[in-house]
Design a protein around this nucleic acid. Structure first.
Lengths: 254, 254
DNA sequence: ACCTCCTTATTACTCCGACATATTACAGGC
DNA sequence: GCCTGTAATATGTCGGAGTAATAAGGAGGT
């Protein structure tokens, strides 16, 4: 969970301290390169329009083969971060073409110092989507959905949000609601956002104490969904996410 | 715009009628393969859990090199469609792991017969996001934003939605609103959905006449945003998307 | 006789570097 | 100014060496 950064700079182990020297077993080389380049782009190290040094040059620079580099570029291309054309080189695309909601891109964005404005945008989007999801969940939830929510709530009572388990329980609760909507597109979207939001929660944990007891607010959402009251569910969820938004905003701007 | 399918089956031109025979100039080979596999997966031709035939086997089957095949797989992996592990082969992941909101995945989903339920999910998500976007736009729009919307509206008056130009104008109008929100995440999301929605509009065009004159509804949205009235803008946009949803639902279920 | 654990062997992905090709940017000539 | 030629660069191809994970088999214990 510590997600120690892919060591691509080589920590002098093995026979030749190449770029792939410090690579673990399950790690794929091109994945590591994609991660390195992705974070570099997301952090603004490469600006849109910038051209990455030539294929061979780059591969030599990183001390990996062209194949590995090429496959990494394919990944970035698939996510809309770069575009490479013969003779012109591989250029960073304008920010609007990036798939900002791709889980991996999101992870890259939060690998370094996350951009405050972007975090705010994300929370704003969440504040739009989740209440609507709660409304739909209230209308469509099955008995199984309710049971899952109840379990997650119980787990939340046992652990605070300061612990990994507690955060996982919170995620489970929200995921259960998403599931109850029966909308695949909604689930995909919120899964991405939820993960990102959890990253920031983790950040927050380091700097200050928890704002308030989150249980009662969650219970209100649950009760409304259980009762099938869409409007009440949306409103209760709105309070929940608004609190998170305010709290995060105040934490990050200081 | 006709988006003629990548001819990967070879139409007997050139010296050897291989898989890449009928490939145009700008087309990348691995892109064509990714498209072929992507549409096959999205259309349900491969079910989650299915394993794609081995690397060498598949490459021979398609008559392309293993490198090209591998790069295509990287693209699919980046979009969460498949996962490949040594010895186990390349498996199709469960649907929940797919990046359904990726523009390319969306395009693949609509390449064949789009799944009705998925289309409905998409419209539902749009009905959630766009009114909220209209509300934000009303609060934050600049003079430039308004001008862009006005231009798009004028273009809509000159062309119906039955034409490509008319649909482009409609897209421009919605994009101008998205831009006015100043929320990058929101823009990325709606750009994807908007494109997909336009695909279905095109489908619809073939089967039946237009439902009603869309101009007045759009003008109402514009006026509310120009007046800075968030609540009115959200409500007007809600009417707009609800109409589209109902219309599409009735068209597709028949 | 059955179950568990460990060892082994196959299998498929992973990575590599060299070669061949195609496309494009750039410059020079018409 | 438009056009064409050339050079630079990314793309596509190939075969092989390396590696990791699964699955099968055998040894030991119950």
């Amino acid at each position: 969970m510590a997600e120690e950064k892919y060591a691509l700079e080589g920590t002098a182990e093995g026979k030749s301290e190449t770029a792939r020297g410090a690579r673990g077993p399950g790690r794929r080389l091109h994945g590591a390169i994609a991660h390195k380049l992705g974070t570099a782009i997301l952090s603004g190290q490469y600006a849109p329009g910038d051209v990455l040094s030539g294929e061979i040059a780059f591969a030599e620079e990183l001390e990996v083969s062209r194949s590995a580099y090429r496959e990494a570029i394919q990944v970035l291309t698939a996510k809309g971060l770069v575009e490479s054309r013969p003779k012109a080189g591989t250029r960073v695309l304008p920010r609007q073409r990036w798939n900002l909601l791709d889980p991996e891109v999101l992870a890259w964005a939060f690998a370094g110092e996350p951009d405050i404005q972007f975090v705010r945008d994300l929370f704003e989007l969440r504040a739009i989507v989740e209440p609507a999801a709660a409304r739909l969940a209230a209308q469509r939830r099955t008995r199984d959905d309710l049971r899952l929510m109840k379990d997650a709530l119980a787990a939340m009572r046992r652990h605070t949000l300061a612990t990994d388990i507690g955060r996982a329980a919170d995620r489970d609760f929200h995921n259960a609601i998403l599931n109850a909507t029966g909308n695949d597109a909604l689930q995909t979207l919120s899964a991405s956002i939820g993960a990102a939001v959890n990253w920031t929660t983790q950040f927050k944990q380091r700097s200050r104490a928890l704002p308030r007891n989150p249980i009662p607010d969650h219970v209100r959402v649950f009760d409304a969904i259980a009762a099938g009251d869409g409007a009440a569910a949306a409103e209760a969820m709105g309070i929940l996410v608004d609190l998170a938004l305010e709290d995060t905003a105040s934490t990050m701007t200081r």
